[in-house]
Nucleic acid binder design. Structure first.
Lengths: 232, 232
DNA sequence: GAATGACTCGTACGCTGCACGAGTCATTCG
DNA sequence: CGAATGACTCGTGCAGCGTACGAGTCATTC
């Protein structure tokens, strides 16, 4: 039988490709590439959600055959991983933030993180079940550095990072899914009305109706930071 | 054409069924019922995970035909909703906890919540994207009551509840998925080794290796509660 | 001019959720 | 008593999915 290429990683060469990219670029469309596939996957995910991404649709958008994708990519999971990572880059805090203001830096980074995920709501559901990509790890590294500078004890550092991770993930996943499952409000309102009898406090406090998500995120984050590094 | 039953809710009668359940119960097996379907779905989900639940497998386990399920249940989503809710019941704090100890009550309830979800790891991924069932709402209602009693200001109550929700959801989802994606450790170890150069602090603090999850959950929860209702 | 490697793609397989319509059987009604 | 009704079961069939496999194309290198 013919020699079959195999191996658990992608087949495409990772080495230096010095080919001078001959002139006829727009043959029918630009050629397939891992980058183009990932970018299109993100488009598709944004437009259609997690279930909306199928290899067939992806190939259609790229103007290629379905199986061509598998040259550049191991499998569908790989596409998810790459799309997720491509969306989580962090460019660092703005200059405006004073470098002594650790609290401002943490808040900025976590709000940016949350915002990135909400811009691509599928990413929030994806992150916990996929391996940690380089961009998330960079964020955690930075977080660790900043908290340490803020005076969090070494023994508490892991717990502090996990707590913030948990808070951000929970908040973002919840928010993203409220958006998704919102059918326009009519059915939701009706459901809530029936709740008021059984769950008076939830109803009274309008827990499920108050939708200042950004404010609540920031305020709750403030409470958590208070607990982690009490203001003296 | 024949009159076709329809409607967005399930077809099976919800009303009082006074039929005396004639004696021949063990015909071949017990008859199909919504309860039996849900219980078996939970079994299947526990054993095979989210992707492991298919209507065909479910029907097989129940000794029935696939389409018979659809008499009792609207569609597959419905099965997920019912299974999720059936798993999240809360029986209240033990008597041991003094009734003045609001902190103990909150911690108990949230730890129980997390434990329930970890006993059925698929539930954690499911909860944020499904509608809120009665059992979760009960928990929130109770939480609201307890926090209020603890002295959390009315204006902060919503934020407090959401913060705790976020923390629990994030912690549980993360934990559940670490379990799932753990391939035995070999590959993970290798991956981590390569990280130590690029992310020295993460490596040094053994952030990804320390696996005292329960302790970290409790300790981080303590920090958050400190922020929400400072001990005087 | 043959060989190689990068890349594309059509076909096919086994799996999925579920629409539809044809059944079975106990209970109720005229 | 016979017919009708409603509760329930189930087989067939369809469209869509991920992807294995093998056959192709084409530029570059020996």
């Amino acid at each position: 039988m013919a020699a079959k290429r195999s191996g658990t990683r992608s087949k495409r060469s990772q080495g230096i490709s010095v080919s001078l990219q001959s002139v006829q670029e727009p043959r029918s469309e630009s050629p397939l590439s891992r980058e183009r596939i990932v970018a299109t996957a993100v488009e598709l995910l944004d437009a259609q959600g997690l279930d909306g991404l199928t290899m067939r649709r992806l190939a259609d958008r790229l103007g290629s055959g379905v199986m061509s994708l598998y040259w550049h990519v191991d499998n569908k999971e790989d596409v998810f991983d790459l799309a997720l990572d491509s969306v989580l880059e962090y460019r660092g805090p703005p200059q405006i933030v004073a470098s002594q203001d650790w609290r401002g830096e943490v808040v900025h980074m976590l709000e940016d993180w949350r915002a990135s995920m909400l811009r691509h709501p599928w990413s929030a559901s994806l992150l916990p079940r996929r391996a940690l990509g380089p961009n998330i790890l960079s964020r955690l590294e930075l977080l660790s550095k900043t908290l340490s500078r803020a005076g969090v004890a070494d023994a508490d550092l892991n717990v502090a990072i996990w707590s913030l991770w948990n808070y951000v993930m929970g908040a973002t996943i919840t928010r993203a899914n409220f958006d998704l499952s919102d059918d326009g409000g009519a059915a939701t309102q009706q459901r809530l009305a029936r709740l008021s009898e059984r769950y008076p406090r939830i109803e009274r406090s309008r827990l499920l109706l108050d939708n200042d998500w950004d404010g609540a995120f920031r305020k709750g984050l403030g409470f958590l930071l208070d607990g982690l590094a009490p203001r003296q």
